[in-house]
Design a protein around this nucleic acid. Structure first.
Length: 588
RNA sequence: GCCCCUGUAGCUCAAUGGACAGAGCACCGGACUUCUAAUCCGAUGGUUGAGGGUUCGAGUCCCCCCAGGGGCGCCA
């Protein structure tokens, strides 16, 4: 946002280094890290060290840097746009002309509204595959992380200028489905509940697992059923189609409730046959070794690459009985994406970390097979959502928290608070607020954490709406809206804040100005955390301002300037919440 | 055995290689006649798992340990 000013100063710095015969090294800009100081900062240590090296002299670098900083600060004087330049401990701090810049930032936000922070279109396509729920199983809190990370990342990438294609890849065929069908045929024929269907699907699957565990001899029945599927037995296919639809309808409802949408659905059942074709091709090309019927079809990747250390190991591409594995299907899926979207710049897979080796194998095998796009495939791993005591959520163990239960509890809890805080709201608004708060509270913890860190789910934390959580941010938005509503009017006229701004105001404007850069970084590093933390930071700065700076009860010109600051803040909170897929309610 | 991840305040987590390692929760003490107290203010809390190295500068990069978690031929 201050590119013109910083590059202007960079030019002066280059003059300075050239006059003194110092090395020409790139200038690194930071924010001045102390609260209440708004401006740009750079350190002279790197320059001092580089110069000492170039002259081959032993120097006390910190002293030299302090010296250089003093000289540079003097040389810079006060460049246009800044009101003060200071050398501090080897750093040079340039303080913005507060009034002028505050006006610029606020005007920029209010002028661009929902587009503040949005980058220009890059004309580049990125596919983000996420969620991959298994049909015929329950949808639990563990499945939520991929869905939320993928959705949020898609929103961020879109905002950062990419054309995002959101792909879902439900697991609608595989051993788990065969087990489910076996259990249904034998113990639940013709049943279908009229509500909580996803939950019921999950219960039947858990029952199937249990029965098989108790009597391992039944495995042969499963194999026989898989064979029937592979031969596309019409009766079985019909039952599969029907029951699969039950699961899918349940998923669509969940996505709707979470405000998560997809452009494209791929199903792994569609990838079985093309996957087998690719495997045959790998065999023909002597990349894969067909050990059937005694063994599977495998690719000895390390051997092909001539690696001495184990890295990609042995990739199993097809079962010994010729039925497809997930691996088989992933080969075809990767190709299908590029057949459908030949211009994809990147094909991202938001899948949990346990499958890292699997994806390395798939992508490397495709690369070996000569598919050039294989290098554009990238796995974005994330850690699991566990239960306290590091217990993994697993449908077959029954150690799960169902998503439906969590959403119901969270919205219920939120409703109780609204009821208590704001009894006069219409029932409709209370429900809408409860939903916004409940869903936001569920999403935020998954976004505000490093992907590589495990999320431990416990009810108490999940339903705690205080502190660093979505409701805090939503509340700041509500407070801002409330001030504007009471003030009335639109405040469209740009105003120069002709008064001594408080540190709370300056810090708030500072945070506002950082939003575009945060978006850029979040997109470049696939970090939803960046935006989640930013939104919280912004809300916190607004709350500081709110408690310290009266808006409606001050005289002009302060009032009008503050109203515009409130307006800009409300807009930026809204924009960051939109990126997080969290609804900003009007009242709470 | 090989590979990957994690280790920061009592707990959960932050911190583009940069200045004084910050938040929330919990605990203790305060603030509603004032723009919504789902808020705010204050206090307490640290050998960043250990040790080396690189660097002007390391929580961050490299090496080696320790601890925990995960992956490693027909599960997904």
């Amino acid at each position: 946002m201050f590119a013109v000013e910083s590059s202007n100063v960079e030019k002066i710095i280059r003059e300075f280094t050239s006059i003194h015969g110092l090395p020409d090294i790139p200038v690194q800009w930071n924010w001045i890290p102390f609260s209440g100081h708004w401006g740009l900062s750079t350190s002279l240590f790197a320059l001092a060290a580089a110069d000492a090296r170039a002259r081959n002299e032993k120097k006390n670098i910190p002293d030299y840097a302090i010296n250089l900083a003093d000289q540079l600060a003097k040389y810079l004087g006060t460049p246009p746009g800044f009101e003060k330049v200071e050398a501090v401990k080897g750093y040079v701090n340039l303080y913005f002309s507060t009034v002028e810049y505050a006006q610029r930032v606020i005007d920029s936000v209010i002028g661009q509204k929902a587009n503040f922070g949005r980058a220009a279109r890059k004309q580049e396509q990125i596919m983000v595959e996420f969620s991959q729920p298994n049909t015929h199983k329950s949808f639990h809190v563990g499945h939520l992380r991929s869905a939320i990370l993928g959705d949020t990342l898609s929103r961020i990438l879109d905002f950062a200028g990419y054309d995002v294609i959101r792909a879902n890849y439900p697991g609608d065929m595989g051993l788990h489905v065969i087990k489910w069908l076996w259990c249904y045929i034998n113990f639940h024929a013709n049943e279908k509940p009229d509500k909580d269907i996803t939950q019921w699907m999950g219960a039947v699957y858990a029952e199937a697992s249990q029965r098989l565990e108790q009597n391992p001899l039944l495995e042969s029945e499963i194999r026989a059923l898989y064979k029937r599927w592979d031969e596309r037995d019409p009766e079985l296919v019909k039952l599969w189609e029907e029951t699969r639809e039950w699961s899918l309808q349940g998923f669509y409802q969940i996505y709707e409730a979470l405000d998560i949408h997809f452009d494209r659905y791929y199903f792994n059942s569609q990838m079985e046959i093309p996957g087998k074709e690719i495997v045959q091709d790998l065999i023909n090309k002597k990349i894969a070794i067909d050990e059937r019927p005694d063994g599977a079809v495998i690719v000895k990747i390390d051997e092909i690459l001539g690696l001495t250390k184990e890295k990609f190991r042995v990739f199993v591409a097809l079962r010994s009985d010729g039925t497809a594995l997930y691996a088989t299907e992933d080969l075809a899926l990767a190709r299908q994406k590029f057949l459908d979207y030949p211009d994809l710049k990147l094909s991202l897979y938001i899948v949990d970390v346990r499958q890292s080796l699997h994806f390395q194998q798939v992508f490397k095998t495709l690369e070996i097979a000569g598919y050039e796009w294989a290098k554009k495939c990238e796995h974005i791993p994330y850690e699991l959502v566990n239960l306290p005591g590091n217990v993994v959520m697993a449908s077959r163990e029954g150690t799960v928290v169902l998503l439906e239960d969590l959403m119901r509890e969270a919205t219920q809890r939120a409703y109780e608070v609204v009821q208590q805080k704001n009894p006069d709201l219409s029932e409709e608004k209370k429900l809408a607020t409860a939903k916004a708060v409940g869903i936001g509270a569920i999403k935020y913890p998954m976004q505000s954490r490093e992907n590589a860190k495990i999320v431990t789910f416990d009810w108490e934390t999940a339903l705690d709406f205080n502190g660093q959580a979505a409701p805090y941010i939503q509340y700041a938005f509500v407070r801002a809206g409330s001030i504007l509503r009471k003030a009335g009017g639109t405040f469209d006229q740009s105003v120069t804040p002709e008064y001594e701004m408080t540190s709370q105001e300056i810090e708030l404007v500072d945070v506002l100005s950082r939003f575009p850069r945060e978006v850029e970084r979040a997109a470049a590093e696939y970090r939803t955390l960046q935006i989640a933390n930013y939104a919280y930071d912004l809300a916190r700065k607004f709350n500081d301002f709110y408690t310290q700076c009266p808006v409606l009860y001050v005289d002009e010109p302060v009032k009008n300037a503050r109203l515009r600051l409130v307006m800009a803040t409300r807009q930026t909170i809204a924009n960051s919440l939109t990126l997080l897929g969290i609804t900003a309610p009007e009242a709470m």
